[in-house]
Design a protein around this nucleic acid. Structure first.
Lengths: 139, 139
DNA sequence: TTAATTGCAAAAGCTTTGCATGAAT
DNA sequence: ATTCATGCAAAGCTTTTGCAATTAA
């Protein structure tokens, strides 16, 4: 709430119910939803909202760095409002995407920076495998 | 040559000129090309080849693990025939994708595995920033 | 009031699919 | 002789765009 209000005011962007709804939906979930999923969830409360508006809102939220876009190779994007540098894990069985809190992303980036001629500014670290739930199921 | 012949025979897949051409093109480049780029390059030597065949060949090559699919968040896939675990770097200015040979991917994965309940099987590590060329240009 | 955003429909990419022809085994 | 792959065109998805109507500032 606070951050989106301040951020949008600073940048001269208008705070619309649709933009707030998209942002709050993302703040309230750990699912890393796609645009379509967000749209389906919000259409109940905002029956007139269009999918194009969801896309435009997400684009705006990404530009002001309140949201990040993930691409796990599924053929669409997922979105995440948790903006601390962190890696992601996707289960190959149930496709769920989890935040990985224990990957020292900044240390990985430092280590990498020391060895390469590239000036590294950001990263996307994806890991794939079997989540705990699916390990139990197939054990 | 050797590996694609053996691999395809083992799996009962047919070795066609198109499939060989796609694979050899990927072996001979460090550009991490898209399907479209591969198609444009091969159409000279194979005037009858279709884009759909490029896609089908890539899908097959990925399935037999001779090629890997990358997604850097551009809205399309890129392909890489270099199959040792390695990270990638994309320049935010010129969009070039580089292999990163100095990222200890397996050590990163080990470190991560020790901290999480996930069973990690593979990874895609992407870094973004400014490549050496573009650092020089803007210096 | 004015400048930006929404919502709709249409368009634009990228990738996949179905099916008849053609090629590899 | 079979079975699988190719090539074409069409379809499918996700995402973007144009523009009139609407809303936030």
């Amino acid at each position: 709430m606070y951050s989106i209000t301040r951020t949008f005011k600073n940048k001269g962007l208008k705070l619309t119910p649709q933009r707030i709804a998209v942002y709050e939906y993302l703040l309230g979930t750990k699912q890393h939803p796609s645009a379509e999923t967000i749209y389906s969830a919000l259409i109940e409360k905002f029956p007139t909202m269009s999918l194009a508006t969801v896309y435009k809102s997400l684009k705006t939220l990404c530009k002001v760095e309140l949201v990040q876009e993930l691409n796990l190779g599924e053929g669409n994007f997922r979105y995440d409002a948790f903006m601390e540098e962190h890696a992601h894990f996707q289960c190959n069985h149930c496709s769920t995407v989890f935040d990985m809190m224990n990957v020292p992303t900044d240390r990985v980036m430092e280590a990498v920076s020391g060895n390469e001629s590239f000036l590294i500014e950001s990263s996307r670290l994806y890991f794939y495998g079997t989540c705990l739930e699916c390990q139990k199921k197939n054990a």
